[in-house]
Design a protein around this nucleic acid. Structure first.
Lengths: 198, 198, 198, 198
DNA sequence: AGATAAGCGAGACGGTACGTCTTGTCTTCTT
DNA sequence: AAGAAGACAAGACGTACCGTCTCGCTTATCT
């Protein structure tokens, strides 16, 4: 029985993956993502600017898009948290408002590019949902559920749908681009949905 | 005596544009759009299948994406109309529900691809908004305004925002793909927004 | 007032060929030939610069190359004549020298382009030989024959070959471009061949 | 102690150029050159027939014509040598005669196409002269110089011009096509120039 | 210490799409 | 009829990018 218990993780033989290259790839990819559209970024450009070989990229990621996805995750890993001030409803309203600020930011626009890139790929879409979107979504779901339990929302409220109605309009404007996404708009949505102030 | 008084518009000299080729290009582009993703369709494939030269395509459209946009407009030109039955609020609710059906259809999914494709191009985005989206949006705006005038909606209602909140969640699910877009979802949105039935 | 009484031959029906267009085509073709290589000149460029339609070009000439050929003939129609001064041998020597000057001129370089263009086309080559080259060549042949008759050249001289040896080296340098074609070179050739002054 | 002294030449990093592809391109180009004119051969046809990508062709050659030039050099690399039998004059005469045979051969006709094709390109012309023509020409120059030194030719003979007069007529007939290039013609030239037998 | 395994940068490769260009024909209206 | 304007099919051009592969070197673990 081979137990090399000393080393917490037994490393496989061979040269280990270069963390320097990995970081260089992800950071370069993100920088390029900021400037150009996702289609305008070429894997060879990433390789060159990162001082890396294209083969190294394709050894660790199955496609250019997967690199982009990882580059985004690597940069925007902190999940927009709840600010526990006020009632649950107020916390939810506050989260919607801060989500609007995120979407309007550079990272938000990059996220939009990511979403449109992965639209046709079930694999990448699944990864995006599981590693990013659903984690963030659960923040809203949780606080809505707490509001429901606390009696701030009706007991028969469908929380999933509530969340879609609260955040959907923000993404709508982000993608269509017919109007700006700003705090005022976020407040209006929250008023309509949470305060019935049509 | 020169008899060109009858023709109201004197045509410019030169061979006129071939309507046959134009239609063949747009129809072929749409067919390919249905099958493959927008990126998988090549301009040369359109040319070949349409029995047309690539030069003809590029003489009339500035890029492959512009062809796709036109192909979509050409197919989906009828604007989803209002069904004038019931109160204005009910007409609006009905329109949201039928919009959900459109988004869930093949044409709806193609439209999603179109929107995602043109995201980074201000020119194409402007064209999409002006030639398609804003025309459709105005249907909802109109009926909401009528509802406001008729007293079915508060006088201080911001109609633009109301529309975004009603339709945004549908597009949200369409783009993100975390849940399905169906009639039930559309009804729920309308209930929350129009009936305050959170 | 219709003035067609003068023409002895009754003109065919329809609009007569425009001599203006014909001249414009030939002159434009020649101008372009001077600037660019023959391959760099496009039929559409000729049409545009000549204010003429491409169809007109192709109605009267079977190909772009045929236009070029005609343009050249149109410009360089005068056959380099013999200067009847001195003995026949001296007249021949003088003609070789002036031929070198022609080859070194702009028209000579254009002729080179013409020859290389028609190299692969039996039809055009035949036309070039019959309408241009053989006419010029016969000048040399004639004077050489006169020299032979006058006893200035041996009776067994093969005049055809003599001409090739006299003029061939000029074309050789023109095409290969390894040395310049000038009067000095022409004199040397004549000396070697006609004076045996090797 | 690191022993890498053995390897005489340390290869540069990166995948080495495929000699197989290079040869396939050049041989395919030559085959096509034999059949069609140089303009009728397309780079894509070479790529396809050689089992190679067009990008590979254009990475190593700047244009289709450059490929053709190389294909010709690759095939006709052996310089027509002097046959050291008899006096230097006789060796020169023999070389002229064998040059005529070369010009009349398939390779000779291809060479004519090459020369005509590169006429307008200083770059390609320079390459042709340096890598092919001047090397061959020096053979004639050398033997003529030896003849001069040996007293077989006058001391004031201009060898460059002598060579042009000897070989020029051959090329003249090759390019103009008004007469055939054969041994008899070559012998006549040599007689006129070297034996003064006009 | 040597053998073995795997990662790495460099860069060439086959494949494929792009958008431009040119040729020669065709269509329409005008002269 | 013939011309000017100009659209058209056909298809070659040379560029760009993708993802794979080859090469020689480097960095590690294993024997």
């Amino acid at each position: 029985m081979k137990e090399n218990t000393k080393s917490k993780e037994s490393r496989p033989p061979g040269r280990p993956r270069s963390e320097v290259s990995k970081k260089a790839i992800l950071q370069t990819a993100y920088q390029l993502l900021k400037k150009h559209g996702i289609q305008s970024v070429s894997s060879h450009e990433i390789a060159e600017k990162a001082g890396v070989s294209t083969a190294t990229i394709y050894r660790w990621w199955p496609s250019k898009e997967a690199v982009m996805l990882d580059a985004f995750f690597n940069k925007v890993q902190s999940i927009l948290p709840i600010n526990p001030v006020g009632s649950f409803i107020e916390q939810l309203r506050d989260h919607v408002i801060r989500s609007a600020a995120f979407l309007a930011s550079t990272d938000g626009k990059i996220m939009a590019k990511i979403i449109l890139t992965i639209y046709d790929s079930p694999t990448l879409k699944k990864e995006f949902l599981e590693r990013f979107y659903l984690l963030r979504r659960s923040i809203g779901i949780d606080i809505a559920n707490k509001a429901k339990t606390a009696g701030e929302l009706p007991l028969n409220t469908n929380v999933e749908i509530l969340i879609d109605v609260l955040y959907g309009p923000l993404f709508y404007r982000l993608f269509l681009g017919h109007e700006v996404v700003n705090e005022s708009f976020a407040r209006s949505i929250a008023s309509i949905v949470l305060d019935h102030s049509l």
